[in-house]
């Protein structure tokens, strides 16, 4: 049974003078507990695909099921709620609220879900410890390194108990040490807690550690390798 089911998804950008066909009939099924990398040259449609899977963007054609729920036709507000309760996000940058501390950033997502303060704080502390930032809970994003910020983002993404975590080039701005560190944490979370990760990347070191690699080219899946 698949967690994410993408069926014949097309995405055409009509905003420009010449319509751009970014996805041309993508079929894809991702199961719970997978650790999947989406790779491909620049412009091949990785971000477009991740945005559609994450409910940030809608397919021009085709359908999307997440946890057996068809989200293809949800309205904006329903989609926001759906994302909040089902998906964790890690973006390449600008992940955190600059005026809040690491702990408050992680708590924020639970606040949106209506958790009470004690439980929020407890879980935020626990998650930050898991990503190795016990010492930095009260630091603001500007006081953290790029790698540390991404780790806070991972903790934040997990806070809501999402069904899976989407990460669009999470290591693109990181040096190799930080990249390895972040991947260690993601792999660990995947193996120990069965957290499903779907991420896009250009980085061969990241690709090497994925257990499934889907290669996109020109809006279509070119290969899909399970290791």
């Amino acid at each position: 049974m698949s967690l994410i089911q993408v069926t014949n998804v097309h995405r055409v950008y009509n905003e420009t003078d010449i319509p751009v066909s970014a996805l041309k009939g993508v079929n894809l099924s991702i199961k719970e507990g997978e650790f999947t990398a989406i790779v491909g040259p620049s412009g091949s449609g990785k971000t477009t695909l991740l945005n559609i899977i994450g409910g940030l963007d809608s397919a021009t054609d085709g359908s999307l099921e997440v946890a057996e729920k068809n989200i293809t036709h949800l309205g904006t507000n329903e989609l926001i709620d759906f994302r909040l309760n089902n998906i964790g996000f890690v973006f390449q940058a600008y992940n955190l609220i600059p005026v809040l501390t690491a702990k408050e950033n992680v708590e924020f997502i639970m606040l949106l879900q209506g958790w009470e303060k004690n439980k929020r704080e407890q879980r935020a502390m626990q998650l930050l410890e898991e990503v190795g930032l016990k010492e930095k809970v009260n630091s603001k994003p500007a006081q953290l390194s790029g790698g540390q910020q991404q780790r806070v983002a991972v903790a934040r993404a997990l806070a809501s108990h999402p069904k899976f975590v989407l990460a669009d080039e999470p290591t693109a701005n990181l040096d190799s040490a930080s990249t390895n560190n972040l991947l260690d944490i993601m792999v660990e979370l995947n193996q120990r807690e069965q957290i499903t990760f779907v991420f896009s990347t250009h980085d061969q070191r990241v690709i090497d550690r994925a257990r499934r690699v889907i290669t996109l080219e020109d809006g279509q899946i070119k290969s899909d390798i399970h290791k």
């Binding site: 994302r83 600008y94 609220i97």
Partner: peptide, 16 residues
């Protein structure tokens, strides 16, 4: 813009 987009992306609803 980016930050607000991020907030909406991670699930902050329009009312908030």
């Amino acid at each position: 813009k980016r930050e607000l987009g991020m907030l909406i992306s991670v699930g902050m609803n329009k009312r908030k």
